[in-house]
Design a protein around this nucleic acid. Sequence first.
DNA 1: AACACCGACAACCGCTCGGGG
DNA 2: ACCCCGAGCGGTTGTCGGTGT
Length: 224
Amino acid sequence: MVDDVKKGPWTAEEDSLLYNYVTVHGEGHWNSVARSTGLKRTGKSCRLRWLNYLRPNLRRGNITLQEQLLILQLHSRWGNRWSKIVEFLPGRTDNEIKNYWRTRVQKQAKQLNCDVNSQRFRDAMRLVWIPRLVERIEAASVQSLSSPPSLLLPPCTDADTSMLTWDYKSIVPEHMSGSCSDTSDSMAVDGFGAGWWEGDGVDSSLESLWTEENICFLQQHLFD
DNA sequence: AACACCGACAACCGCTCGGGG
DNA sequence: ACCCCGAGCGGTTGTCGGTGT
C-alpha cells in the first residue's frame, strides 16, 4: 500500500476530486481526504495542493510593487517566517513568497556578492531597493489616481521588537529618504541616476537593480 | 536546429509542534 | 508523563518553458 503513493505533478482529474471533496467537506483531516477521494496521494500532498493551487481567492501572476515592498519589510521583521509574512499578502501562498525570495531577492544579493542575510545586503535594500520601490509605487499611484496603491500594512504589536515601522521614511535614513521626493539631494540620487529600474515590463523593479553605478555607490557609502 | 543554461514555479521531504488518548 | 498522529512550516529538489549560443 505504501508503494502505491503517487508523486509528481497533479492531473486535472486529481485536482477535480480534491477540489470537490474539500468544497463539500471543508479543509482539514487531510489523510482522510486522501482516503475518501481515492486519491493515491499523501494527506500532506493533498493539503499542499489545496493551499497552493486549488484554494479559492488565490492571486496568481506577478508580485506587485506593493507586495514586493511589503515582502522586503516583513522579511526584515520576521526573517524566513513565510507563513507569518503571507498573512499580510492576501491570496498569496507561503510557497510563492518563498520562491520569490529565493529566486529574485537572493539573486540580487548574489549580484552584490554578499549574503542575503548580511548587514551589507540589508543596508543595500534599505538605501536603494526600498526607496526605489516606494518611488515607483508613488509614481504609479499618481498615474492612476482611480486605483491608489493598497498597502496592507500590519500594525506593530508589543511582541514585535524589531525597529521596523511601516512608514518607509523611518526605514530610510533622513539623508536618503529625500531621494524619494527631493531630487536635489545629491548623495542619495546622484549615484543611481534616474531610471535605473526603467523598463517596459510590467514588473521590472528588479531588473538591472545593481548597475555598475549603483554598486559603485554602495561600495563608496556602505561597504568600506 | 540543437543544445545548454537559467529562472520560475510546483512539489516533496524532514522536522517540529500541539492535541488527544 | 509519555506516545502517537495529524498538521504546519521551512528548506530543498524536480520540472518545465524561455532564452542564449
